[in-house]
Design a protein around this nucleic acid. Structure first.
Lengths: 161, 161
DNA sequence: GAAGTCTTACTCGGATACTTAATGTCCGAGTCTAGCAGG
DNA sequence: CCTGCTAGACTCGGACATTAAGTATCCGAGTAAGACTTC
C-alpha cells in the first residue's frame, strides 16, 4: 500500500505556488518542467486540487494555476485528501457477519472492534497532517534550502508566470 | 490507496486465535470458514504472520496455526507491518533533484522537507497502532460482543482445533 | 496383545493466473492575447 | 493614430491505453496420525 506519487507532486506544486506574487499563475507545463515529471499526468493532480478548491485554474494564454486561499489556511491534509480521497485507508469488510455462530437476526450494535482501532490510527495520521499548514512548511523550507537556491528558483518561476 | 483486505483478515484471525487454549492450533481451513473468506488466499496472510514470528504453523494432521507470543506482547502494528510491509506509506521520489536551478554538484543536505512531514504523519499512524495490543483488543471485544455469542464462537472453534 | 512399520490423509508453503487500481498519454472545449483591418 | 474585429495559439478539462499491484487459485513438500503386519 502506497500513496500515489501524485500526492508528492501536488504538495511540491503547492509549495512552489506559494512563492508566486499575488494573482500570478503558473501553467502546468512549467510546474511539470520544474519538477521533472510528465506534464499531462501532473495535470490530473492539479485538476483534483482545483476541484477541491485549493487552487484555481485560469484558461487561455498567460493562464495557469494559483493558490485559492492563503497558505495559512491550507493544510497538508487538504492536499492529500484532494488527491487520495477522503476515505479511510482501512475499510471494514464486516467479515464478522460471516461468523457461523451468529443468530439469524443478529444486528451488529456498532462498528467492528478491529475497524474502530484501525480508524483511530487513521485519524491520528490525519490529525498529524492537519497540523501542518503550507505556511508552516514554507518556514521549514527556508531553513532546509540555501537562500541562494531559493531565490534562484523563485526568479526562474516568476519569469515564466 | 487502501490497506489490503488481508490486513483485516490477519487481525481477525489473531483475535480468534487468542481464544484458543495453550498449545492448540487452528487450521487455515477453519479460520477461512469462520470468517467466510477464500481459504487459499487467507493462507498467504497467515504465511506472512508466520514469517514475522507472530504465529507458528505446524504441519500434518491436527496441524494449524497458533500465536507465537502472549497477546500482551503482540501489537496491531506488528500484525499490520507483517502483512503490509515496513515501508512508509509515503516514498519520496526526490523530485527536488530535478529543479533546473540547482547547481550541478549540489548535494541534498537532508531529507526532503515534504517527505519529512509526511513521514511524521506516518509515524503518528504507527505509534497509534503500536499502542494497542491484542490483549487490549480482547478486553474491548468482550465489551462489544454479547457474552453468549463469544462463548458460542469459542466452543465452535475449540471443537475444531 | 504389543511394537514397529507403512500407508494415508491432512497440513503448510511457495509458484502460478486473473482482476482492479495506479500510471502515463492523448485529444477536444474554452478563452485570452496579439496581430490586422478599417475608420 | 485609435478602435474594433478576427484569427490564432495557449490554457485547462476529461476520455483513452499501458503497467504494476492486489486478489484469487492451484499444486507440491513435509509431517503426524492411524491402520496394518509381524513377532
Amino acid at each position: 500500500m502506497n500513496l500515489k506519487n501524485q500526492v508528492e507532486w501536488a504538495l511540491h506544486c503547492c509549495a512552489v505556488m506559494m512563492a508566486l506574487p499575488d494573482g500570478a499563475t503558473l501553467p502546468a507545463k512549467v510546474l511539470a518542467e520544474f519538477h521533472g515529471v510528465p506534464k499531462e499526468y501532473l495535470s490530473k493532480a492539479l485538476q483534483a486540487l482545483s476541484q477541491a478548491g485549493i487552487v484555481v485554474g485560469t484558461l487561455g494564454p498567460t493562464g495557469g494555476y494559483r493558490l485559492a486561499k492563503k497558505p495559512e489556511e491550507i493544510t497538508f491534509l487538504d492536499i492529500v485528501e484532494a488527491v487520495e480521497g477522503r476515505r479511510s485507508t482501512f475499510q471494514c469488510g464486516e467479515i464478522r457477519a460471516n461468523n457461523p455462530c451468529l443468530p439469524k437476526k443478529h444486528r451488529a450494535s456498532g462498528p467492528c472492534t478491529v475497524a474502530r482501532i484501525m480508524w483511530q490510527a487513521d485519524e491520528a495520521w490525519r490529525t498529524s497532517l492537519r497540523g501542518v499548514t503550507l505556511a508552516a512548511m514554507g518556514e521549514q523550507l527556508a531553513q532546509d534550502v540555501p537562500a541562494e537556491i531559493l531565490e534562484k528558483s523563485r526568479n526562474w518561476l516568476v519569469s515564466r508566470a
